[in-house]
Write a protein that binds this DNA or RNA. Structure first.
Lengths: 376, 376
DNA sequence: GATCTCTCTGCAAACCTTTGCACCGAAGTA
DNA sequence: TACTTCGGTGCAAAGGTTTGCAGAGAGATC
């Protein structure tokens, strides 16, 4: 029932190889023949069978997207952007959810390997060495994790955390808490590192609370802890936790931002909808998705791998690009941050507490931090 | 480089067909041989090539998920559940985003058809006839849309709307607005139909405002309209619009629920986090995802299609199940609904306005409304 | 007119796997 | 002993496509 290249060949009176070439190397076929074949194909509703094509070319025109938790609102914009970019270049996208489980990640990479030209690992929980090992099986691009020798797409949460701390100190806060993220998260480490450094520089106290699960509950559970810590401002690992904290503080009667200021990270769409609206470090997730797909497909284009000579898999000795892209973040000031106990009434920044200017991130602005080409 | 069945055969000293059988029909091979082959396979890290397998068996062990908008918070839980269920049965999932565009939907079904065993169409915008036509190319299961002759997974939003109206009237509201959804949405029609009928039954006035885009902005834009309509309660097509309306009403100084009560539909995770917390009709999206995948795979199992006899595609004359499953919804009462002008102080329901009992939906409870088997 | 070049097309092998069929040998039956 | 049965294995074709190679003409050059 499904129409194959053979049917088209029969209908247009040419050999199947001519039909094949009409689609995969049109310049090799006589224009007249070409239009005839195309007409027949159109007529019959012929679509090349990508699986059969993959079998011989070694490229599937599919990519895999491995996600820690699809339901975590941080990821959907990334998935959407990645899928859109991929399809724009005629690639289809497998999406798989690991439930934040490292073992599931590994299994998925294996399972998908034969069926895709590359895999996007989003905020993986696996060990570095395992990721490296897997990258020998199938081309990998890692999002939200830095690995030497592998292409990575990173968001400059360090810069974001610094800006957030400076913002808080500018508002007159000196006792600040950091609600840490999950163990094994590169982003979490990076935020802690940068926040610590920034606090030291500007002379503020930073209390780290955590690690915590990166969920609303994770934040909610720490409200009491935050009050006891005696801080007047909190930087949370992500918006979900910040929102949970907002809930928790409200429940124990601590007002935001009058008594405690709260800053999140990510700027998920939800953050505009809480009351008070959340001040947060916006991460360019959509841009990250697009960029990661671009890097993966770039790699794919660079490394020709016909089954004829060598077969699928990462060819040995091929030049692999391992560019690491760092995307900028930006602080979006909303209503969850206000003046602190050391506020200087002279300074306009503190006075302008509450609804402030919204500095938006420019999502399409990758900064190549290290773009080198090495022989593997 | 990639290890094939041939490598395993060589290593274990048997013919490739024996290796093949070890994986796809283990009972046909001598236990001793089997363990030897499996050991070699394990050793070499062999994984069957699904594309090659698909080429001959006619089943890809992939399914497609076509989604109107991945970033719409209604969908991620559905995607997550569907993916999980599919992988649990050893299927991989393509996800594609159509941006609410009917043409994109059609194109995607065509593009995916050869690469999947079936497609889940989630809240499609295409015409019924087009969907029917496409269903002849590849098995389809439709979510959130009713089509005669096709397997559908529906959520009983009609019942939900009725309950919502009754809830509002019970609180003392009689002038109620319905914020309509997008044109061409089955859910939207269903809600309007049921809300109208319920209002008529209980003697309330229902003003329909819309259609509107199913987004936060869609709700936000109608705040003024709602005030002018002189209603004291609003039922919105979905939570996103309800939340937008919350925003809009706040901006023009209308207090919720004191002056206007608001009810949404879907119970997206966000709804628990707004201020006030949103009363809403919970739809079992995760269950819908699981059920839809089950139905698709069931169909797939029922209709054997080896390439040997007939090839891929929907076999002609094969019995196709066209069960339509209706999933129950449930009203979750939170803080956005309160007593209305006709509240009866005697009745406890009105008195208990504000945080009320949370009646949760049971997500794993499909009601088969019409499960018939027809010959196509 | 012979030779060469060049464009277009056909042939057939190859990609990896499944599966109907045939074969072999051992065990069971008459 | 002769025959059947049956479990286990090998053989080879098939699935839809790509692609190196060769060949067939047509046109150009001498």
């Amino acid at each position: 029932m499904p129409v194959t290249i053979r049917d088209v060949a029969r209908a247009s009176g040419v050999h199947i190889s001519t039909v094949s070439r009409t689609f995969s190397a049109p310049h090799l076929v006589n224009p007249e023949t070409r239009v005839r074949v195309l007409a027949c194909a159109e007529d019959l509703g012929y679509r090349p069978n990508r699986a059969a094509r993959a079998l011989i070319t070694g490229r599937t025109h599919n990519i895999g997207l491995i996600i820690a938790d699809i339901a975590n609102p941080f990821f959907p914009p990334l998935i959407k952007a990645a899928e859109s970019q991929a399809r724009h270049r005629d690639y289809h996208v497998f999406v798989a959810d690991t439930n934040e489980d490292a073992a599931a990640e590994e299994e998925l990479v294996h399972a998908l390997a034969k069926q895709v030209d590359g895999v996007l690992l989003c905020s993986p929980r696996m060990s570095n060495s395992l990721i490296e090992q897997l990258s020998r099986e199938v081309p990998l691009v890692v999002v939200n994790r830095q690995l030497a020798g592998l292409p990575c797409v990173l968001m400059d949460v360090g810069q974001g955390a610094r800006t957030a701390i400076e913002h808080l100190v500018g508002l007159g806060h000196r006792e600040i808490a950091l609600l840490g993220g999950p163990r094994g998260s590169w982003t979490s480490r990076e935020i802690r590192r940068a926040a610590n450094a920034a606090a030291r520089t500007v002379g503020a106290d930073l209390t780290v609370i955590g690690p915590n699960p990166p969920t609303e509950t994770g934040g909610l559970a720490q409200a009491e802890q935050v009050r006891r810590a005696g801080v007047t401002a909190v930087l949370a690992y992500n918006d979900l936790m910040a929102i949970g904290l907002l809930e928790g503080l409200d429940a124990i009667g601590v007002r935001v931002p009058q008594e405690v200021s709260v800053v999140g990270v990510d700027d998920i769409s939800l953050s505009r909808l809480t009351r008070p609206k959340l001040t947060t470090v916006a991460t360019p997730t959509a841009a990250a998705g697009r960029t990661a797909v671009d890097m993966l497909l770039q790699q794919d284009t660079d490394a020709p791998r016909t089954a004829r000579g060598g077969g699928a898999g990462v060819a040995v000795g091929v030049r692999r690009t391992t560019a690491q892209v760092m995307l900028q973040t930006e602080l979006v000031i909303r209503d969850s941050t206000g003046p602190g106990p050391y506020a200087d009434p002279e300074r306009p920044e503190a006075a302008a507490a509450g609804p402030g200017p919204h500095r938006r991130a420019d999502p399409g602005n990758p900064i190549v931090a290290a773009g080198d080409v090495v022989a593997s």
